[in-house]
C-alpha cells in the first residue's frame, strides 16, 4: 500500500490483515509525542499529514553528511498511550506502526479517527533498516538526541505488518 493510504481503505483494514507500506514515515517516541502534544499543527517544523507514525528510536550513522539507518525496529508503543489519542485527533495521521500494542484510549481514538495500528516485531532492527531507502530529514536531533528525534524516512514495502488494532476497536492484544 502506498502512503498516504486513502482513509476509506484504512477503515476497511481488519485485525490479522497483513500489509506492506511504501512511502514516508516519521519516527516519534516519548519526547517527540510530548512536543507534538504541546504544538499546533501549523507550528510543527514538519507536516505529518499522510505519513505513517512509526514508534521507533533508530540507530543511525552518518557517512559523508548523509544519514543511514543501521538498525531501526519499533519501540514499545504503550509508552505513548497517554498522548496518542491527542496526536490522532490533532494531526492528519491514520497509520501507526509499533510493537507490543496500545490500550483502550488509543483503541477508541483509532475508531474515532478511522485509523489503524500495525505491528512489526521488536528487535528486528536490521530487517527494518533494510527497507528504509532514504533518511530524508531529521528534526530536534540536537535537542532530543538520536533515539528521541523525529526522523523522516522513505520506506519501500515495509512489512510484513500485521493489523493488530483496527478502526472497529478490535485488537489482537489481550488485557492483563
Amino acid at each position: 500500500m502506498r502512503l498516504p493510504i486513502p482513509l476509506d481503505v484504512v477503515k476497511k483494514l481488519r485485525v490479522n490483515d497483513v500489509v506492506y507500506v511504501t512511502g514516508n514515515v516519521f519516527t516519534a517516541r516519548d519526547s517527540a509525542h510530548e512536543k507534538m502534544r504541546a504544538m499546533n499543527p501549523k507550528d510543527l517544523p514538519f507536516d505529518p499529514s499522510g505519513m505513517a507514525l512509526y514508534h521507533c528510536g533508530p540507530l543511525m550513522k552518518q557517512e559523508q553528511g548523509t544519514w543511514i539507518a543501521v538498525s531501526a525496529g519499533p519501540t514499545t508503543s504503550s509508552r505513548m498511550e497517554d498522548v496518542e489519542d491527542i496526536i490522532l485527533d490533532r494531526f492528519d495521521v491514520h497509520v501507526i506502526i509499533g510493537k507490543g500494542g496500545m490500550g483502550e484510549r488509543t483503541s477508541k481514538a483509532l475508531k474515532k479517527t478511522g485509523s489503524v495500528y500495525l505491528a512489526f516485531p521488536g528487535g528486528a532492527g536490521v530487517f527494518a533498516a533494510e527497507i528504509i531507502t532514504r533518511v530524508s530529514q531529521v528534526y530536534w536531533l540536537e535537542e532530543l538526541g538520536m533515539p528521541e528525534a523525529v526522523w523522516i524516512l522513505e520506506v519501500k514495502e515495509f512489512g510484513p505488518l500485521i493489523v493488530a488494532m483496527d478502526s472497529t476497536e478490535q485488537s489482537l492484544y489481550r488485557s492483563p
Binding site: L59, G73, G123, A124, A129
Partner: peptide, 25 residues
Amino acid sequence: RLQLEIMLENVKLAKRKRCPLCQDT
C-alpha cells in the same frame, strides 16, 4: 509464526552485516 520468521531472518541479516540486531543496543 510470521513474527518468529522475521526475527530469525533479522538474526541472519545482523550477523552477515555485523550490525546491531536491535536498534536498542
